[in-house]
């Protein structure tokens, strides 16, 4: 994973609550065996009309939302399935951060492992960002702050290890493999065959 330390971008807003992973990428696009190129399916059933044209009323299709790398989404974003295709699709679509007052566990975990900043912010700041699309935000992972255009700053939750991995681009599989001795010792103690 490439290190992620700072993101500066305008925000796009999807205020819907409980946006599930079937919304983010419908299951019929999961027959792929690749992880690349899924951005074209992101939010497919909202983004396109039945005849394949772009849906002009979908928030992210508006001119001012194009190119935004930070999505502010309604509460409980990413609920539903464990498909990692969801963060893969959002990253490939061009997003680098998703902010919400609540983010579903598996989606958040999958996102952070891929360098997509799925960040939980407080309800009051969440309300403010939902009401003000297009704000230019500066996310600082090391300082755990998000800076508003007026210089105001607020924090976000992030556990120490996830933060370290984002900043240093830590390969978590490499981290686990380095603990092979402990794993072998555990297997011996529990009498489970390796």
């Amino acid at each position: 994973m490439k290190p992620v330390s700072h993101i500066r971008s305008r925000t796009a807003v999807l205020a819907h609550e409980n946006i599930d992973t079937d919304r983010i990428i419908p299951a019929r696009f999961l027959t792929t065996t690749e992880r690349a190129g899924l951005g074209r399916f992101a939010f497919n059933d909202w983004r396109y009309l039945a005849d394949g044209r772009e849906n002009p009323s979908f928030e992210l299709n508006r001119d001012e939302a194009r190119g935004c790398e930070i999505l502010v989404a309604g509460r409980n974003f990413g609920c539903g399935s464990s498909r990692e295709h969801a963060p893969w699709a959002l990253l490939d679509y061009g997003l680098r951060a998703v902010l919400s007052s609540e983010i579903a566990d598996i989606f958040r975990n999958n996102s952070l492992k891929n360098g997509l900043l799925a960040l939980v912010i407080s309800e009051s700041e969440h309300r403010y960002l939902l009401a003000h699309p297009g704000l230019e935000l500066a996310i600082d992972v090391a300082a755990q702050t998000i800076e508003l255009p007026d210089g105001g700053r607020f924090g976000f939750q992030l556990d120490a290890f996830a933060k370290h991995c984002l900043l240093a681009g830590v390969d978590q599989l490499g981290f686990l493999l380095a603990h092979n001795d402990s794993i072998e010792q555990y297997e011996r103690l529990r009498g489970v065959a390796a």
Binding site: S81, S82, P87, D159, L176, L177
Partner: peptide
């Protein structure tokens, strides 16, 4: 519990997961 594909790789390779 359910996991993503990156973690499927972790379990295949190490039989372990990083968990809080």
């Amino acid at each position: 519990f359910g996991i993503g594909t990156t973690e499927v790789g972790h379990v295949l390779a190490t039989q372990c997961l990083l968990q809080s």
